Structures are given as C-alpha cells and as structure tokens.
Simulated assay, not measured.
Amino acid sequence: MTERTHSSESETACGCKLGRVATEYELPNLDDELVTYWTGDGDEQLSTRQLATYVNQRVLEAALEDANILLKDGEIENTYRLLTDDDVSSGTQVQTRNELERDGVPIDQVESNFVSHQTVYNHLTDCLAATLETPSDDERVERSADKLGALQNRTEAVTTDTVAQLERNDILDIGEFNVTVSVTVTCEDCLQEYPIRTLLDERSCDCQDSSADETR
C-alpha cells in the first residue's frame, strides 16, 4: 500500500482544499476536466454537485489503487454510493468502511478529503477564474435546494432547542427525541404529494407526464 503524505501548500496549484486534494492524490489534469465539464454545452455540462461526486470518486479510486485493490467496472461508483448515499443503511455503510479498512484503505482520511459542491464552485470561480454566462438549470435547482435545505435545518435546530429547553424547565415531559422537518408540495391538478427534493429532481409532477403522453 502506498502511504500518502500531505503536500506542502507550495506544491499545490492553489491553497484551497480541492487544490490540495488534487495534489495529494496526483490528479494533475483535474482542473482542466472540471472547467471543461462545468462550462460544457448541453448534455456535456455538469453541475457542481455532479462534479463533487466526480472528484470524490477519483479520490476514492486513487486510494483503492494505492492499496493494490483490483478494480472492476462500476466498482468505484458502487463503493462511493455505499459510503455516501442517504438510502444506504448505516449497517451497510459501516460494513463497507470496515471492509475497506481491512483491505488497507485509510477510509477516514479518504472521506475527510471528499469535497462538497460548494468547494468545487469556489475552486472553479476563485482559483481557476472559470465563469458561466448564465446559471444552468441544474445550478438553479441546486441553489434552490440548498436554500430550502438550510431553512429546513434551521427549523429542526430551533425546534430541538425549544423542546429541550421546555423539558429542562419541567414544562414538557418527553424522553429522548429527534426532530424531523419535511416539506411536501401538492399538485392540485393531479392531487399528488411530492417531497420538495423529489420534485426538484424530477422537475415535474405526474399530471405533466400524463399531458405529454396525451399529445403523442
């Protein structure tokens, strides 16, 4: 297994996290790829969220290669999904991490080097001076999702603090608790309810799909 060491800032293309990660995992062409994918046309254009996934999968791939793990087609994508997807159970995630540790992959260090889409955006705009004429549809959706997610997290935090304070003052009687805030959108035409994240991902409701079918 190859042991990676953190490179000094002078050896990196820039001082931000993504620049340091690209140097540490020896990804010399990553900057060019990110700019090309972000500013591409049509189907070739990727959002910063998609680019964050791309970067993180490249990091994971480099770490597995360092551990001399033979990679099969699709293995990196599936392993990354098992580590990060919200739909994957915590038991499966723990098992995946333990298996990687046994194979010599320093998974704690690898995961700490994963980047967010905001980090990718900052790297593109601040370090690489890349620009878009207008935000893509994907970027608009992501910004909207981030704004709604921040509001949702804030509501959860305020609610948790309020309940805890009332419980401490013996005004409210409750055991261990968790607060979950969910937002749904109901289409009055098709009468279907959608979690806001699902609606943003799908970009339409069922009645829009039905209307499209009727015109064919």
Rank of each mutant, 00 (worst) to 15 (best):
E193A: 15
R168P: 01
G15P: 10
N153S: 15
A150S: 13
D201W: 04
L200Y: 03
E202I: 06
I196E: 06
Q192Y: 10
D41V: 06
E26D: 08
L64V: 07
L51D: 05
S144G: 15
S211M: 15
D66K: 10
H6C: 09
D85S: 14
D170E: 11
T39I: 07
E101T: 15
R97D: 01
T53E: 03
N68M: 01
V181E: 03
T125F: 14
L60F: 06
L46I: 10
N169G: 11
L124Y: 02
E33P: 04
Q57L: 03
C14L: 01
Q192W: 07
A62E: 02
V21K: 02
I171D: 15
V59S: 04
A130P: 00
C16Q: 01
Y194K: 03
T23A: 00
G104Q: 01
N29W: 12
F177H: 09
V105Q: 04
E193Y: 14
Q50S: 14
T5I: 10
D137K: 09
R143Q: 14
S116P: 02
I76M: 07
E65A: 14
N169M: 06
L34I: 00
D213S: 10
D146W: 11
A63Q: 06
T53I: 15
E65W: 03
D66S: 13
L172S: 14
E101M: 12
N178P: 06
A212M: 12
V120H: 00
E3K: 14
E33W: 13
T48W: 07
A130R: 02
Y37Q: 09
